[in-house]
């Protein structure tokens, strides 16, 4: 079975020229007795959007959290622009330009909108917060993403789910990332906000950012992704170029029927 999976994965890989923006090999991660990831390889080039799909518990979030430095892999290597990196935590990944929007958003409810957007990279004058500059910056960030939040001094706890999600996205997209990972970024968003996120992804791609998108909204994948990777039980089982596949095939790959034929 394992050999079969590996073979399928190899066959599904699509070769491409140049050094990948991010390249991972043989990532393994166990939590106690549970093997969350059983050796995942992936390449992603600048200006490309890769969709990751798979059933619940297929290992999508674990895999992306390893890319973002939140989890440390048991085995495997990560290269950024051809340079090997080992993170000891998310701060290092962030310094290397890898940003992630987490499914649980990682916002601080009791801090205001501007403070959350600048969380961890506060503008300062000496030891003091430069609140006015952060509020101006926050307004500019939100305007660029077409997010409507009238008061950037409002506490995040007072906002709707969609607004909170928009803030998490704005935070990770606004500081010049090289790799942007979006874990279910549109689940709580309304129609116009989803459109804004998809437009943002296209814009970031054009700027040369490598984007990884995890979503259950398969129709979104066809609009912004160049490639799609399918995960199943902790492995990558298939990779397809978006223009050479269709919805039916992807659904079949996700539920695991495609590999047995």
């Amino acid at each position: 079975m394992n050999a079969h999976l590996a073979e399928a994965a190899k066959a599904a890989s699509i070769p491409r020229d140049g050094t990948p923006r991010i390249s991972v090999r043989g990532i393994r991660k166990s939590f106690g007795s549970i093997q969350a990831l059983r050796g995942v390889d992936l390449d992603l080039w600048a200006g490309e959007c890769l969709g990751i799909v798979g059933d619940n518990a297929a290992g999508k979030s674990t895999f992306t959290k390893i890319l973002a430095g939140t989890y440390i892999p048991d085995e495997g290597s990560i290269e950024l622009d051809g340079k090997g990196v080992r993170y000891s935590g998310p701060a290092e990944a962030r310094n290397n330009g890898v940003e992630m929007v987490y499914q649980d958003l990682s916002l601080c409810d009791t801090i205001d909108v501007a403070g959350n957007l600048y969380l961890g990279r506060e503008l300062r004058r000496g030891p003091f917060l430069d609140k006015a500059a952060m509020q101006d910056g926050a307004r500019a960030m939100l305007k660029r993403l077409e997010v409507r939040i009238p008061n950037v001094a409002a506490k995040v706890a007072q906002l709707s789910g969609g607004q909170r999600q928009s803030i998490a996205i704005a935070r990770s997209a606004s500081f010049g990332p090289r790799v942007l990972i979006l874990d279910e970024p549109t689940s709580a968003l309304a129609v116009a906000e989803v459109e804004a996120v998809l437009a943002l992804i296209m814009r970031l791609k054009a700027e040369g950012v490598a984007v990884i998108l995890i979503t259950h909204r398969l129709q979104d994948l066809f609009r912004v992704c160049d490639r799609i990777a399918v995960m199943y039980e902790g492995t990558k089982v298939a990779e397809r170029a978006m223009d050479k596949t269709n919805l039916e095939e992807i659904v079949r790959l996700i539920v695991g029927e495609g590999h047995h034929t």
Binding site: P90, L107, I111, G120, R121, P127
Partner: peptide, 20 residues
Amino acid sequence: VYGRRVCAVGANTEAARRVG
């Protein structure tokens, strides 16, 4: 900045860690 960090750690320790 220190005061902001104290608030952030109290509000959501994991979020504070994730932003470095």
